[in-house]
Amino acid sequence: MRKSASSTLAAAGTLALMLGSLAIAPQAALATEASVVEEGKAIAFDRKKGNCLACHKMKDGTLEGNIGPALVNMADRYPDKKRLREQIWDATRINPYTIMPPYGKHKILTEEELDKVVEFIYTR
């Protein structure tokens, strides 16, 4: 019997996981990360989800607003990724007057979506 595409993929995934846990397959690990970043980007740019471009300029963005600062050098500026996540989860904790929506606190994004956005913003 021929194997279905999905079971082949599943097998490949398991293999990658095993290899990943042995830390000898950085290629596979990078591949997953890249797709998380892509998903994060889609969520961040979606007008009905993050809509971050309403206020922030960033690489690959179009028709951006200028209410917030341009998002650049994020990895350098936020050595602790948790702090970046906090800013996005509830910006009012850092600046009580901010206009930036509290994406996590008000469930504008799910926790999973927020994680992906953080991964994406970290690449800007």
Binding site: L63, G65, N66, I67, I99
Partner: peptide, 15 residues
């Protein structure tokens, strides 16, 4: 006030 006082004259997206 966030939009029409603090950010009057700024752009939200293209507006």
């Amino acid at each position: 006030a966030h939009c029409h006082v603090d950010n009057a004259g700024n752009k939200i997206r293209a507006d």
